[in-house]
């Protein structure tokens, strides 16, 4: 799976759960790797790219989560 596709899968997962359930990076690794049959490390690297590009951000609400940055 290409990194760009993994990034897309991560972004869509986060987008879908916004407002419903906060996702921890660990939740993202588990779900995206299981759904696509890829290694967690690949998901981890893709998330790092999304964060560096500021498409996603970390938030802190008593624990650390990933979210789409507010407009």
């Amino acid at each position: 799976m290409e990194t760009e596709d993994i990034k897309k899968a991560i972004y869509e997962l986060v987008e879908k759960s916004m407002g419903k359930k906060l996702l921890k990076p660990g939740d993202v690794f588990k779900k995206v790797s299981a759904d696509n049959g890829i290694d967690k490390k690949e998901v981890k690297n893709a998330l790092k790219e999304l964060i560096d590009e500021e498409k996603l951000v970390y938030s802190y609400k008593g624990g650390s989560y990933v979210e789409i940055p507010p407009k």
Partner: peptide, 16 residues
């Protein structure tokens, strides 16, 4: 407390 605050790329090191 809390929220979205930090430096680019990091999820820690800054406490809102």
């Amino acid at each position: 407390h809390g929220g979205i605050v930090g430096v680019r790329g990091y999820g820690g090191g800054v406490i809102g």
